[in-house]
């Protein structure tokens, strides 16, 4: 196959899939990885793509929708992707409400033998078409203005259940008052969930730190694992380190600086 032809096909694949990997392409075309790298170099100089760690993505200005380029959205996606890797096959997890958990649900849609319990209707909808994910929605009443369920019905429906990992996205985290959510009902539910498991994971984006919310859920040191990004404020980082909290910070090494 001529180089020109291969370049053309790489372009087509990229337009379709938005990102490619060097190893994958070298298998597809049966040429060495360094040949593929050179091809990608050429296309990068044309401005068609942007090389990433181990592959390439379509140059953003040509396709990416504006909301995908929003730093907060990108940050949440990063967190969700890392959190998704924490979920093993055959596990039962709880997903609390909130945009980060919603993204996590999207990342988990392709998994097999997974049980997701959630009190968020949006998450349930997100996973509705996932063929191998077993979704269980709690009962209870809708919290006004959200898609989240809470109340005695919700508490009732998780009684007796046990989770491998609950993923929570509190809306506030304060050094003194700990994690908190906006409504008492939600807080109650979360406390009930955390009471029955050890491996709780808090997903924290930049909006959370230093913000107070009405109903406290747990102290900062009580949730043993947090997933966040390098926007984690210094004082929080110091606190977590001092209290033996496992801090995962998600990076986007494959596509750094994609924000532009």
């Amino acid at each position: 196959m001529f180089t020109i032809e291969r370049l053309q096909r790489i372009r087509r694949i990229l337009l379709e899939k938005k990102r490619v990997e060097v190893t994958e392409l070298s298998q597809v075309f049966g040429v060495s990885e360094s040949t593929i790298r050179r091809d990608l170099d050429k296309l990068e100089k044309e401005g068609f793509l942007r090389k990433t760690y181990g592959g390439a993505v379509l140059a953003e200005d040509s396709v990416v929708a504006p909301e995908d380029n929003d730093p907060l959205t990108m940050e949440r996606t990063k967190i969700a992707r890392l959190a998704a890797d924490m979920v093993g096959e055959g596990e039962a997890i709880f997903l609390g409400g909130g945009p980060v958990c919603l993204r996590l649900a999207a990342c988990l849609a392709g998994r097999q033998r997974l049980t997701v319990v959630t009190n968020d209707l949006e998450i349930a909808v997100e996973l509705a078409e996932a063929p191998y994910v077993n979704v269980k929605v709690t009962g209870g009443e809708l919290i006004p203005g959200t898609f989240s369920l809470a109340g005695s019905g919700a508490l009732e429906s998780i009684r007796g259940l046990c989770f491998n990992k609950p993923f929570l996205a509190p809306t506030g985290a304060d050094l003194k008052f700990g994690y908190a959510v906006p409504t008492l009902g939600e807080a109650q539910l979360i406390r009930a969930v955390t009471a029955v498991t050890q491996e709780i994971v808090a997903l924290l984006d930049r909006t959370v730190f230093g913000r107070l919310a009405l109903a406290p859920v747990a102290g900062l040191a009580e949730i043993p694992t947090v997933v966040t990004t390098n926007l984690l404020p210094h004082d929080f980082k110091a606190f977590y380190l001092a209290h033996q909290v496992k801090v995962f910070t998600a990076y986007e090494l494959a596509q750094p600086g994609a924000r532009r």
Binding site: T23, K237, V247, F248, T249, A250, Y251, L253, A254
Partner: peptide
């Protein structure tokens, strides 16, 4: 310092997630 170390560990994590 310990905080930079933590960043480093997480970067190592991410490296392996990318296939390194």
């Amino acid at each position: 310092d310990i905080e930079t170390k933590l960043d480093f560990y997480n970067i190592i994590n991410e490296l392996t997630r990318c296939g390194a």
